[in-house]
């Protein structure tokens, strides 16, 4: 079916975020220019695409700036302890495998204090989607360096430059056994929406590392002029799509993070295995 030329003009149908936001909770607590709000919006659009009942969605978080996300969204929401979101979520998912369980966590929450839970969740391949909001800093406590702070960056606890090499969240998730691993940025917001949607559709542990900006702490301490400057330098110019990487000359790829779906395999999911291999065997034995 051909579309008349004039209709090819973009027709704006803005997304109705109110469908998923709890009334009266905005403005959120995040600073001006913080990328978390952009990521939250992409997450809501991705969840909307799933077309599932809000009663069957559970959003779990730990502690930190990004972990305030559940308070704004109209699902079953759980704001837990620093680093422990994935463990609380594992309990919920195992008790209610029919629920869609999403963990919203920060880089410090997921990879430092919660690092053990992170790798073991990936290993189990339990059907949880972990969205890691990576702003490379501890924002809530005032800008200390995190496990993803780049070398030599300034933070309130690395005034002379960070000497700890950062984690590559995606490489770690993949090595630990996650069956869907992707990276997105707040800048590439439509691509991020699609990536989160794919992660949510995946059966098994899915991890999306989301690069977003903390202009208040990381930006100011590391001489970024604005949130926009950070988004351009770190998210747009600091990453390269996995779809383009083979077509680009090496100098255009060097030092950049890969964006897009980086790893996707099929492996038995934990709750299904539990039902099939544990419960069935146990019940057969007791008969």
């Amino acid at each position: 079916m051909s579309v008349p030329a004039e209709k090819k003009e973009k027709i704006s149908v803005p997304f109705d975020y109110n469908k998923y936001l709890r009334p009266g909770k905005l403005p959120h607590i995040w600073c001006p220019g913080c990328g978390h709000g952009i990521v939250l919006k992409a997450m809501l659009r991705a969840i909307d695409k799933l077309g599932i009942d809000k009663d069957n969605v559970c959003v779990v978080s730990g502690i930190g700036c990004s972990s305030r996300t559940p308070g704004y969204v109209d699902f079953n929401t759980l704001h837990t302890l620093h680093g422990r979101a994935l463990s609380f979520a594992t309990g919920i998912k195992l008790a209610r495998p029919d629920m869609k369980v999403i963990v919203v966590t920060g880089d410090g929450d997921a990879l430092a204090i919660g690092g053990n839970h992170f790798i073991h969740t990936c290993r189990r391949n339990i059907d949880i989607t972990a969205l890691v909001f990576t702003n490379a800093i501890y924002g809530m406590t005032g800008g200390q360096y995190s496990p993803t702070t780049p070398l030599e960056s300034i933070a309130t606890t690395s005034r002379y430059g960070n000497i700890e090499p950062p984690f590559d969240t995606c490489e770690m998730a993949k090595a630990a056994g996650a069956t869907f691993v992707a990276r997105g940025t707040a800048y590439h917001t439509l691509e991020l929406e699609k990536t989160i949607y794919e992660a949510l559709m995946h059966k098994g542990t899915s991890v999306v590392d989301i690069i977003d900006a903390c202009p208040t702490y990381f930006g100011r301490m590391n001489k970024y002029k604005s949130a926009t400057h950070m988004m351009e330098a770190m998210e747009k110019d600091g990453t390269v799509s996995v779809k383009q990487v083979d077509k680009l000359p090496p100098e255009k790829v060097a030092g950049k993070m890969l964006r897009g779906v980086l790893h996707k395999i099929d492996r038995p999911e934990y709750c299904e295995q539990y039902a099939l291999l544990v419960q069935e065997k146990a019940q057969a034995k007791s008969k």
Partner: peptide
């Protein structure tokens, strides 16, 4: 933590 999740 998982036990609290199960209870919830």
């Amino acid at each position: 933590a998982a036990a609290i999740g199960g209870s919830l």
